[in-house]
């Protein structure tokens, strides 16, 4: 009786099977990176708190109504694409005089390139952006406006860090970023309760 060897299983198609599985997982894998606009909510204030007195020229008022129209400073009707420029102009105004700033423990904004208009903001640290929307405003408009306001700050921060350090803001060290965030162009966006 001739002894017959059991034939070996052909493993040549193993690669094909593995490829098939590989392609399945390649297709189903979603490397979705979650991105978004980060904001920090204000802490809850006690009921009886007295709001600080602000000069009106230091407040940049943005209103969005339920028809998604934007009103700036109470009298200018604006489209979203004009908002960034107007915001930059306001923050970067730096209209405070030396003696007025000394009272507030600040120095005159020497890095500001704005118009130095006395009727607009004194200093980036004093400039407050107040955003009020309506309950019926669409989320898309709201996000666009938020985005433009944040963008105005990043434009200014990038400009400053490029002039001073020769690179963009997000390439600076954490220490350098902190200085810009607190002393040069702090982001002060206040959100009022929406109108009903």
């Amino acid at each position: 009786m001739a002894r017959r060897d059991t034939p070996e299983i052909n493993a040549g198609s193993m690669a094909d099977i593995a490829f098939l599985l590989l392609i399945f997982f390649l297709v189903t894998t979603t490397m979705d990176v979650d991105t978004g606009i980060s904001r920090k909510l204000p802490e809850k204030q006690p009921e009886d708190i007295v709001p600080p007195i602000l000069k009106e020229k230091n407040v940049f008022e943005v209103n969005i109504n339920r028809r998604n129209e934007i009103l700036v400073e109470g009298d200018q009707y604006m489209k979203v694409d004009q908002l960034r420029e107007a915001t930059i102009k306001f923050i970067d105004n730096g209209g405070g005089t030396a003696e007025a700033m000394a009272k507030e423990d600040l120095v005159v904004c020497s890095w500001c390139e704005g118009d130095k208009d006395p009727a607009s903001s004194d200093h980036p640290k004093k400039a407050i952006i107040s955003l009020q929307s309506d309950r019926g405003t669409s989320y898309a408009t709201y996000i666009s406006v938020q985005n433009e306001l944040v963008a105005a700050y990043s434009v200014l921060r990038n400009r400053y860090s490029n002039a001073k350090f020769g690179k963009n803001f997000d390439r600076l060290t954490t220490e350098q970023q902190k200085v810009i965030k607190t002393d040069i162009y702090p982001q002060i966006i206040s959100e009022a309760e929406p109108t009903k």
Partner: peptide, 8 residues
């Protein structure tokens, strides 16, 4: 819960 992110 103050840290907020609007996903976009």
């Amino acid at each position: 819960a103050l840290k907020l992110n609007y996903s976009t």
